[in-house]
């Protein structure tokens, strides 16, 4: 318990650093006023709007005001949406989670059989094929994969919807797009881990007892490999979020990715801040949970 509290305390400076950096970058990027006014607005009109929005104050004052409010849970108003920024971000969060969870499911569904299979058939043609495809999966830019999938499955074959969020069919292509890199990573990891486990004593004992290879693989070996699988997913969560952000653009998925890209283009400071901080908190929480889970499952790790 003290461990958890200590870890949580370490998060606070992290969040302050993150917020400062993001604030600085957005501040330096200029303000949203030019984008809010008609495109041929004069400099006088721009200055006036700036004053109204409080953007004429010095940087450090603006950041101070932001930080004070943020501590009270107020990330400020979105310039574009004229609403609480945090609310806008939380509204989009479920869509991104849906995509991420689906892509995790897709990647494990792909990775487990492939990883196990190539471990059993080690150094055969099957193994070579699976290993090289998994490297291929890592080498492809995911947005390009998404574009190719749409071209094939939606436009040419007309089997799946092109974009948007709605039915389970809408989820398939985005989930594959966002999940492929992770699937590749997991396959490779599972393969090497399974090879290691399969050569261990207790598996050999089980074999000598006459247990069928199916039982051995799925009951004993695979169960032992699940922990590293979960760890990899947790460690890769940040990459996965990044991948989801890009995938959302390809499939017009109404999640955080779309929101943040628009907010950056529109210089919508409050939304960018809230978005980045929510993602940061999420990544930290997932890593913390994975860490705890690891300790629960494997008590040999000490709470130091």
């Amino acid at each position: 318990m003290t461990y958890i509290i200590r870890r949580l305390f370490q998060v606070i400076p992290v969040l302050i650093i993150v917020s400062f950096l993001v604030f600085l970058f957005v501040y330096l990027s200029g303000d949203p006023v030019a984008l809010m006014l008609p495109e041929d607005a004069s400099q006088a009109e721009i200055e006036n709007m700036r004053k109204v929005l409080g953007l004429d104050k010095p940087f450090i004052v603006q950041y101070g005001i932001f930080l004070l409010n943020a501590v009270n849970g107020d990330f400020g108003q979105s310039f574009i949406y004229k609403q609480e920024a945090l609310g806008i971000v939380l509204e989009r969060l479920p869509a991104t989670f849906e995509l991420m969870i689906a892509s995790i499911i897709v990647s494990t569904i792909i990775a487990i059989p492939l990883g196990v299979w190539s471990a059993i058939r080690r150094n055969t043609f099957v193994d070579l094929f699976i290993s090289s495809s998994s490297i291929l999966g890592k080498a492809m830019p995911n947005f390009w994969l998404g574009m190719m999938l749409v071209l094939l499955f939606s436009v040419t074959l007309q089997l799946l919807p092109v974009s948007g969020k709605g039915t389970i069919y809408h989820l398939i292509l985005p989930a594959i797009t966002a999940g492929t890199a992770m699937a590749a990573q997991l396959t490779r990891m599972l393969r090497s881990h399974m090879i290691e486990v399969l050569s261990q004593d207790y598996i050999r004992t089980a074999r000598s007892k006459g247990l069928g290879s199916f039982v051995i693989i799925f009951k004993h070996a695979l169960r032992n490999s699940m922990l590293p699988v979960i760890t990899i997913i947790a460690l890769q969560i940040s990459t996965l979020v990044g991948g989801a952000l890009i995938t959302e653009t390809v499939f017009s998925w109404p999640g955080l990715g779309q929101l943040i890209i628009q907010a950056i283009h529109a210089r919508d400071m409050a939304v960018v801040q809230a978005c980045v901080l929510v993602i940061a908190v999420f990544v930290i929480v997932v890593n913390l949970l994975a860490d705890l889970l690891y300790r629960v499952v494997d008590p040999r790790i000490k709470y130091n």
Binding site: P94, A95, F97, I101
Partner: peptide, 9 residues
């Protein structure tokens, strides 16, 4: 919200 996201999926 994470739980919610899971539910909606």
């Amino acid at each position: 919200v994470a739980c919610n996201g899971g539910q909606s999926s």
